[in-house]
Nucleic acid binder design. Structure first.
Lengths: 111, 111
DNA sequence: TCTCGTTATATTTGTAAAGAAATAACGATA
DNA sequence: TATCGTTATTTCTTTACAAATATAACGAGA
């Protein structure tokens, strides 16, 4: 069996974590479900944790990533802003490129 | 303030973690100190944790990374094998390249 | 055979993070 | 104004991981 090289990337602002793999997974679920509680359930994350993650991202990002509404028809909901969508697609793109890059790097070694 | 993109990489074998940043830091300290207990102390890691890390790496790597001796003059000691040295220098090199790569990637976005 | 400082290992304790549960707040609609 | 399903928040419990503690094993040299 040969070695593999793995990575996790995340985006920081002011030294604080803004967005990592967990957040991105959750945001994608919100986009699909239209609701924070349903999104959390779909990826088997507690509602509280999901809310905390989204809250932190919205407070730290340059612009809001989701629009959350309370009450009203259907009880409310949560959906991604265009900026939120651009953030997760950028993250995915860079992450994918990083994996390829590391595979190439490892291939050039002799460990 | 602008976003920054960070990463942590690690080497796996058979799906198990072999070597990450913590291990590399410890191995460098072993190289410098010639002793596992002194290395652990120098980087403020408990001896037990340090021993567990080194033991796991030695068991999983293709070849031993350290040579440990018990008893004798000085009580024993621990030192890196040539293979161990090549592993950490490879890790450092790829890690550094990864950081540069990610900086370039981020610079090409407009988030 | 005794000493020494090290590696090796098990056991107990402490702590911080995760999880569960309960409840408040909300607003369109009927 | 009563209902509904959601977001928002607090409190309590559990649990996993880190840390501390204790002790055994080792072998060269005096």
């Amino acid at each position: 069996m040969n070695y593999k090289i793995k990575s996790r990337i995340w985006i920081e602002i002011d030294g604080n974590k803004l967005l990592g793999e967990g957040n991105v997974k959750l945001l994608k679920a919100i986009e699909k479900m239209g609701s924070l509680s349903k999104a959390a359930k779909s990826i088997e994350m507690s509602y509280k944790k999901a809310w905390s993650l989204v809250d932190a991202v919205n407070k730290r990002a340059k612009k809001p990533v989701t629009i959350n509404s309370i009450g009203g028809k259907g009880g409310g909901g949560s959906k991604l802003t265009p900026y939120g969508k651009s953030l997760i697609s950028t993250f995915d793109e860079i992450n994918k490129n990083c994996w390829s890059f590391l595979d190439e790097q490892l291939a050039q070694t002799s460990i």
